[in-house]
């Protein structure tokens, strides 16, 4: 069970959180991008083994989304950032 430092609430147990995917830049205007670009945004992932940048939500807590830098091979957590904060 991971101990996740919510940027608003502090460290809380894993079951309070939900993973929300890799941050992806939404192509705009969406209508004018190619099928391939849209598909890349929708489906394709870096899926790194090791240090990863992830979106998480403190869904059973404050409800806020944040960025977490985490090692997917060890579950070590390097940092959690409020959206918009510099990495």
């Amino acid at each position: 069970m991971q101990l996740i430092p919510c940027p608003w609430c502090g460290p809380r147990n894993e079951p309070e959180f939900s993973y929300g995917g890799e941050p992806a830049v939404r192509p705009i205007p969406a209508e004018s991008v190619s099928d391939a670009t849209w598909s890349d945004y929708l489906h394709f992932r870096a899926n790194p083994k090791g240090r990863a940048r992830e979106l998480w939500c403190h869904s059973a807590g404050c409800g806020q989304w944040f960025i977490m830098e985490r090692d997917t091979a060890t579950h070590a957590i390097f940092a959690t950032l409020k959206p918009g904060a510099a990495a």
Binding site: D40, R45, A46, K49
Partner: peptide, 18 residues
């Protein structure tokens, strides 16, 4: 389990999460 990692080494991404 490691196809995404290997695809990355080959220069492309897969629509996969592990």
């Amino acid at each position: 389990g490691h196809n995404g990692v290997l695809a990355g080494k080959a220069g492309f991404r897969l629509p996969i999460t592990s």
